[in-house]
Design a protein around this nucleic acid. Structure first.
Lengths: 120, 120
DNA sequence: CCTATATGTGAATACATGTTCATATATAGA
DNA sequence: TCTATATATGAACATGTATTCACATATAGG
């Protein structure tokens, strides 16, 4: 077994080797933060529904509001968050703003997530 | 094209067909809720780190606190959430409580998530 | 039984989040 | 230009969340 190398393990830790191994592999702050941001964006039922229905077709704001049964304003606020997170894009056509997924990665996450909650 | 079938589409909606198709496929409330809960659980950098290091080895509370550089109490609170969500399990051995992942599904989600943030 | 150590937890705090309301902006059509 | 409709957004509010502090519980070893 290799010896712990990080300084902080020499004094106070209960199980220095385990800690050092863990410290070597743990995601750096920024990446952990970004990953958490991504999951946080998927961590709201309204946004879940929005993203899910957008995976099948482009929809405008008032349609989305009808589908998820929420006010137009609430949906619009959520869409802004999803836009900022680059999870959705939109195009303007006359009075309507048509939203769609920016890429399909999110769908893979949904599928994994659904698989998890469905048999666990 | 098939006609819209859901009642609510007959009156107010802007694009009834799109809405009806979406309504037919949208996740039911409870499932959207559960999925959101799962992602919410992954939506915090501390928990992200905890789960990630637990994917490699079993660790006790004070070790986890050292690795994620947070107080023992904070870690303990987070572990309770993760326990309630059945994402981690633990066994007591003397004075220590050794935590580990309950299953490996979460890791798949992390990998998907990392893939997403790393090239997007 | 007493002490030291590891862990769990309630209360308090600060902060983040989601929705609503009112209103602003943008566009189409008269 | 004026009106109607779709969308965006700021402010306010209520609720949720993460951390800290103080303390409770549990266990090992005198």
């Amino acid at each position: 077994m290799k010896q712990p190398e990080c300084d902080s393990c020499q004094e106070q830790c209960e199980h220095p080797q385990a800690i050092c191994l863990a410290k070597e592999m743990v995601l750096p702050d920024q990446e952990a933060q970004e990953l958490a941001e991504l999951f946080k964006m998927l961590g709201d039922p309204t946004r879940v529904k929005i993203l899910q229905v957008l995976s099948a077709q482009e929809l405008c704001v008032c349609d989305l509001a009808a589908v998820v049964e929420m006010g137009q304003s609430a949906v619009s606020h959520q869409l802004r968050l999803l836009r900022n997170a680059r999870l959705v894009k939109y195009r303007r056509e006359g009075k309507n703003a048509w939203y769609s997924l920016n890429d399909d990665h999110v769908i893979a996450l949904f599928q994994q997530g659904l698989a998890h909650i469905r048999h666990s």
